[in-house]
Write a protein that binds this DNA or RNA. Structure first.
Length: 420
DNA sequence: TCTGGGGTCCTAGGACCC
DNA sequence: TCTGGGGTCCTAGGACCC
């Protein structure tokens, strides 16, 4: 019997904060989205107290204050680095690891005869906690979808839970609501319930062709996965991205073209960095801007426009120029904008592009410039060298007033320890 | 006053071609 | 009254994930 495990970091962002700030232990703690808008991570104490996931912060502010809760802006430099540590540790426990998100990974144990999976994964869990400070949970099953379900049960069962025997799987699936299955969201959940399919077990036992007709192959695959037939394989290396998007809402609304231009240039710069890190080039770029649709009384506008390049590129200067040209076309004066973004599409690996061009195109100057830029900014800190189009003082830039220090990625922000 | 950001996959339908 | 059939490519939109 093949076994896969889903490992997830419990309350990941909060757990990262607690590693470096033990005063947050046992205290209701939440982490906010960009601009301190919504609640995107909660400690167990905050969950128990009824703080809602995804809720706008201002709606939960008072409740949190009443119970002496801690509130933090998000600190992605810290979370990203802690994630890397956990993932590399997992690699020592399985030859095949798929990093599924910043706080989750699938592990393939293949046909591990003679290994006690429970022992193996309990040991992994202890090591993760001791070496990184992050508590993880482990669910084990014959397929990804069942491993996901097992992971849910691990929360109440000592952190590791296996669903490998038919009896255990049936019992677990019978107690699981259909919309709690991985891959079944609210919409499909409702439609399945209307058909009388209310539990994971009921979906497992439904007629596959009927499910296919009503919901397409995606849900049919989930059905088979629930039966223990693997349809979703574990991917060792992530495929290069097909699209790269950088977008943000502004700290305060922006009307002036100058500020929108700075934002577009900054986002294009970030997107270009991601593109080069992937070793890719893009053939197209689009820019979008929109007003705040939550303000129903105000005039609304959504604009987007794209540019196609004659040759695929990853040059920040060219991408900024294209972004500004697109922005000029879509900008309408008289509106106060709330959010803007830059999307790169038609992405291809840089090497293949060069071969196809038979050296008719010379990328070498631009490539040399970009790698120097990247090297400097990696070594000396982001935006050490940058394009003037990004601007210098930016009132539109995001809020993050309650952000903790970047303990693990900036020398100046290292934690200080005082021995008494 | 305040309301996140970044992705993927699939499907249906239109445009276009021979 | 009759006015092909089959294939590909692209795009928009819907669904999902964390």
């Amino acid at each position: 019997m093949c076994a896969v495990a889903l490992v997830d970091c419990r309350n990941f962002y909060v757990s990262c904060e607690r590693v470096f700030n033990p005063k947050l232990m046992n205290r209701p703690t939440v982490v906010l989205s960009n601009n301190d808008g919504c609640i995107i991570a909660r400690s167990e104490e905050a969950k128990t107290a009824g703080v809602r996931m995804g809720a706008p912060y201002h709606e939960e502010k008072e409740r949190l204050a009443r119970m002496g809760g801690a509130v933090l802006s998000s600190n992605y430099a810290l979370y990203g680095d802690m994630s890397t540590r956990v993932m590399s540790l997992l690699g020592e426990f399985s030859p095949k690891v798929e990093i599924y998100s910043i706080d989750e990974a699938f592990l393939d144990f293949g046909n591990l005869a003679g290994i006690d999976l429970m022992d193996h994964t309990r040991w992994m869990r202890e090591r993760a906690l001791r070496w990184t400070g992050i508590p993880v949970g482990v669910g084990i099953g014959p397929t990804k979808v069942i491993a996901k379900a097992a992971n849910k049960l691990a929360k109440r069962n000592g952190g590791v839970f296996a669903l490998l025997e038919e009896g255990a799987i049936r019992t677990a699936l019978a107690g699981m609501a259909v919309e709690d299955i991985w891959g079944i969201g609210g919409r499909w959940g409702k439609r399945l319930r209307r058909m009388g399919i209310e539990t994971a077990l009921a979906l497992r036992e439904a007629e596959p062709t009927r499910i296919r007709q009503g919901f397409g192959v995606v849900v049919q695959r989930i059905l088979y996965e629930l039966r223990g037939v693997s349809c979703l394989s574990i991917e060792n290396a992530p495929p290069a991205k097909k699209e790269i998007c950088v977008s943000r809402s502004f700290r305060k609304r922006v009307g002036a073209m100058e500020e929108l231009s700075q934002a577009a240039a900054s986002y294009a710069t970030r997107a270009a960095e991601k593109l080069r890190r992937d070793g890719s080039r893009a053939c197209g770029l689009s820019v979008f801007i929109h007003t705040n649709h939550f303000r129903e009384g105000e005039p609304q506008y959504n604009g987007s426009g794209s540019v196609r390049f004659a040759h695929p590129t990853s040059d920040t200067g060219l991408l900024i120029r294209a972004a500004l040209a697109a922005l000029r076309r879509i900008h309408r004066p008289g509106y106060l904008y709330h959010k803007a973004g830059v999307l790169l599409f038609d992405i291809a690996p840089a090497r293949r592009v060069q071969e196809e061009m038979f050296d008719r195109l010379d990328f070498s100057r631009s490539d040399a410039l970009m790698s120097t830029l990247d090297a400097l900014n990696t070594r000396m800190g982001r935006a050490t060298v940058r394009y003037g189009a990004e601007g210098f003082e930016a009132a539109w830039r995001m809020k993050g007033e309650m952000r903790s220090p970047r303990y693990t990625t900036r020398w100046e922000e290292l934690a200080k320890v005082r021995a008494v």
